[in-house]
Design a binder for these strands. Sequence first.
DNA 1: AGTATGACTCATC
DNA 2: AGATGAGCCATAC
Length: 122
Amino acid sequence: MLTRKMRHLDSPVPDSTPDQRILAAIRALPCGQVASYGTIARRAGVPGRARLVARLLARNADPGLPWHRVLRADGRIAFPPDSDGFREQCRRLQAEGVVVQRGRVRLPAAEDDLDAALWRPR
DNA sequence: AGTATGACTCATC
DNA sequence: AGATGAGCCATAC
């Protein structure tokens, strides 16, 4: 039986939903590396949908998902500074060696995949 | 159908 | 660097 929804052509595009690709993009973040909601959205093929990323994280129940590596575009933690989420995220990041000061992390200057991957300071 | 609400982002000041 | 307002998109009422 073929899929119920016929594809226009049998396109080689991954048969995945934006949600799945976003989760994949987050899971693809290496330990100690961070990215903004917007960057995750872009990497997942849904540019401009940072809020979708945020919504997914808010609902996520998977304890293995490295949600703490996702920050706002300015490098700040998205939770209110006095919240449990904030503290937990800080703790997890620092446990990975990420420098967090005043709730802020220095994001890779060029959030491009290439630069972020190659420019990583030792 | 209209309004409010976010783990958002960007331009501007 | 902080504040503000507009844009944005999916859900919830």
